[in-house]
Design a protein around this nucleic acid. Structure first.
Lengths: 336, 336
DNA sequence: AATGTCAAGGTAATCGTTGTCACGCGCATT
DNA sequence: AATGCGCGTGACAACGATTACCTTGACATT
């Protein structure tokens, strides 16, 4: 048996109408006599008819789905974003196709093409490193999340990465820190680059030097961040404060600090994470809610689906600094 | 412009063949002359042809997608599971439709029906509370993840919930604890019920009473778990050890213990979580990897897609107890 | 030389739904 | 009484690919 052996023509037959009229009833077309509508409705219920969405989509030219492409589905930040988008899409009868670009340009292009070939009605993408200029020939609306795409000059829904990082560094400095270390992911990622720029701007304004030995800009995961933190703590002039530009790397830093019992070192994280508030000291963070980001993106996509043109303007989601203790530790031994 | 204005017939025209032959080339049919194949291939590249997956799916009767339904997409456990499944599906050219049942039976049924109507080739479901007997009339293969469905007697891919809980309680007891509290999610959820059964069996074997005041069996989220923990600590005879049956609730327990500075209380969690190993004391957990679970489920689904019949036997994934400190705290004042 | 076989390719039907257009039938309008 | 207007309805084509079935010609077999 096929998934649903009941076709529209079976319903029409049972109701004694044409398939077209049955179709009208199903799609809520007003131009159907109440009596007819009733008969069709009954037949639908009786037979347990369900629209074949493939056929519908073929006919209509678009599928009632939106695709979302993120670097890593398992990352709590993106997982929450996906959840939010699904929650918004569901009531509209829109399904969600989820795909990851696996932090690999080849894969990224393939994934996006695959989604396009599926005739998704829209796409939400966190671009990695693919040149997205090919999208200009495509009519499917695409909204970019968290980062700008390469090769395309369109707005995106992003958080205030540069500003948040700036604030965090200024915050640390206000407690007397001068040797402030930076840990980020790969700088080819826009998010990382911007956060570093915020760090640089703050350091510059503070008249502090950017020391190479206090920069770890390739920390893809927690393990690498842990190693880098350890290396820095072993320096002759170790940092008195650390700024980690991602939740994921923060886990590594926290691990290193705790295992070495160096919780006297000030620490702040761009991105909140579970238990950040129960550690001792609790971790000071810049909070940027993935849900807000996702909501904005989905709202924007909805507008695009309704015909609005792509906006070249960014939607910037504000961030909040949550002081919990770790970022307010003073620089006891102001070194050099 | 339509998503891809290039159709198969355009390719055929350009290659000077019929659409059928072009189709053969695209689908890797061997019965095409090398020369012809070449011409078609070239036309495909030149025109940038992409198969319209909707049309293909309509004709074939199934779509190259699998659907996954989980209670909460944002839950790190399920997020990781989704990630694993996506990673396995991608190389096969299968896309992933993700949906959540929002812990609501009505929604659950609707969501599953929607996915079925989309003609997914298979479904992976973490059932919540819907009666799934209706699936018996459906041919789409369904694999159940983490729990058994109601109203259906089929195997599922699950972890050893009962055994893991049993081990955890025995472990706590071996350090002298007699008043061991239990925190779980809603008991209508099979996972929670089984973990509680493990607790009960252990307590029974230990000849310890099941005290109502030490049972909090409705902790849906961390906040509730925190409240329940606080309530228990305020008892005349508070527990000396706590067993939290879910990562999510564990976060609440940890929060309560830390905020009250009662880290002398022994604690173990069913389910690992980020930073569990850097807290002081580090948290003893039963680790059950969502990826393993997901992998098994996807393997099983693949077999089903290849025609294997549904197995009535469960696939049980073993769990591991990771002693980190919090579960090995002794019961100092052995009460009553 | 006649026949059979097989590779290579084509034709038309089909998947299930929806958009286009046309039709009949009352009812109000002139 | 003739015209016009909507309403409710249905016949039919189309969406773009695949599949069942057929044709053709080259070559091998007897």
């Amino acid at each position: 048996m096929s998934p649903s052996p009941v076709r529209l023509r079976d319903v029409a037959l049972a109701a004694g109408t044409s398939t077209k009229t049955a179709s009208r009833v199903i799609n809520g077309d007003a131009r159907v006599a109440t009596d007819t509508r009733h008969r069709v409705q009954e037949a639908v219920d009786q037979l347990g008819y369900q629209v074949d969405l493939m056929a519908r989509s073929l006919r209509k030219g678009v599928d009632d789905t939106v695709g979302i492409v993120v670097p890593t589905i398992g990352d709590p930040f993106f997982a929450k974003a996906i959840e939010e988008i699904e929650q918004m899409a569901l009531p509209r009868g829109i399904n969600l196709l989820v795909a990851s670009n696996s932090r690999d340009p080849k894969c990224e292009r393939k994934v996006v093409d695959g989604l396009l070939a599926r005739r998704v009605s829209g796409l939400i993408v966190t671009p990695f490193s693919t040149d997205y200029s090919f999208l200009e020939r495509v009519v499917t609306p695409v909204v970019f999340l968290d980062r700008h795409p390469k090769g395309m000059d369109v707005g995106a829904v992003i958080v205030d990465d540069e500003g948040g990082a700036y604030r965090i560094v200024m915050h640390l400095a206000s407690f007397g820190h001068r040797r402030i270390a930076l840990l980020t992911d790969d700088l080819t990622i826009e998010t990382s680059r911007l956060r570093r720029e915020g760090y640089v701007r703050a350091m510059f304004e503070l008249d502090l030097p950017i020391e190479q030995e206090l920069q770890a800009t390739w920390c893809v995961d927690a393990a690498q961040a842990e190693t880098c933190t350890n290396d820095m703590l072993d320096l002759d002039h170790p940092p008195t404060a650390i700024f980690s530009a991602r939740s994921e790397t923060s886990l590594g830093v926290v691990r290193a600090l705790h295992l070495r019992r160096r919780t006297d070192i000030a620490f702040a994280s761009f991105g909140d994470f579970a238990t950040a508030d129960v550690l001792s000291p609790a971790i000071t963070v810049i909070d940027h809610d993935p849900r807000t980001l996702a909501r904005r993106a989905m709202e924007m996509l909805s507008e695009r689906l309704d015909g609005a043109p792509a906006s070249p303007v960014d939607t910037i989601v504000a961030v909040e600094l949550i002081a919990r203790g770790s970022g307010e530790l003073p620089a006891l031994r102001a070194v050099s």
